[in-house]
């Protein structure tokens, strides 16, 4: 499976409302980060959770965010970051 994004690429997390076993927390939706690494392809948890095989597999990435991007009033250091795993179908180029 080919990865659509590469480490260093800027990506935006899609801001869509989707019920079910979704592994994209609301606090990162609509936010912009940078691909930290390609983790590999995994069964789609949204399908796996409801009795399907999880096929087709989805490419999974670790995305790095500046905390100040996630929270308007973040009061730590500007360098502080958060890293989280996001599946490719939740990512758009930014």
């Amino acid at each position: 499976m080919e990865a659509r994004f590469q480490p260093g690429d800027r990506v935006r997390i899609l801001d869509r409302d989707q019920p079910g076993h979704v592994r994209t927390p609301i606090y990162v939706r609509g936010k912009t980060g940078v691909i930290e690494r390609i983790v590999g392809s995994f069964p789609n948890p949204e399908l796996l959770a409801v009795g399907h095989s999880g096929l087709p597999y989805k490419m999974l990435y670790r995305v790095n965010f500046a905390q100040s991007e996630l929270w308007d009033d973040y009061d730590g250091k500007p360098e502080d970051t958060l890293e989280i795993e996001i599946y490719e179908h939740w990512l758009a180029p930014a």
Binding site: D80, T81, E83, I84
Partner: peptide, 15 residues
């Protein structure tokens, strides 16, 4: 220390 970066990892998927 103030000078250190804090990096939080949200363990939300397969790692």
């Amino acid at each position: 220390p103030e000078a250190k970066q804090v990096r939080v990892h949200d363990s939300n998927a397969d790692l």
